[in-house]
Amino acid sequence: MIHVSMIVNGKAASADVDSRTLLVQFLRENLRLTGTHVGCDTSQCGACVVHVDGRAIKSCTALAVSLEGAEVTTIEGLAKGGKLHPMQQAFQDNHGLQCGFCTPGMIMSAIDMVNRKGSHLDEHTIREELDGNICRCTGYHNIVKSVAQGAREMATAGAAKAAE
């Protein structure tokens, strides 16, 4: 067993884990943060996307022990003070989810997309950038709308924060 410590959703978290423990297992099994899902075993579906040090990664493809000291944000860490993140709100507003299983990964990928590509995202860009996240329910139509709205509102929220 190896001791590993991280900052997860702003809180210190540590555990003694088997060296082969994946980040997603550490989150789900050690920390009981079950919002991050496992939908495949080939790093294709994106249900497990979380942010590590501000960048989206597939947590099924990272060893927990390789992330000593990392700052991790999961879907549970997005809403602040009872207020949904604009991207979360956008998914509800646009019916961007049905069964909800792929949704945490979709939202984490979408936020990362905005962080990398800015808040003016056209449909083509959103569709290309969602290539690593599979949804079986929605046909993506409403996910694309959700991401576009979330991106715009992240910019608005960012501007409002800067003005404060």
């Binding site: 899902h37 507003d93 909800g100």
Partner: peptide, 17 residues
């Protein structure tokens, strides 16, 4: 807008696993 969305978009769903 869907009631169930709130738990799914916040990672608070309860799936079997």
């Amino acid at each position: 807008k869907r009631t169930e969305d709130i738990r799914f978009i916040t990672g608070k769903g309860h799936y079997t696993d």
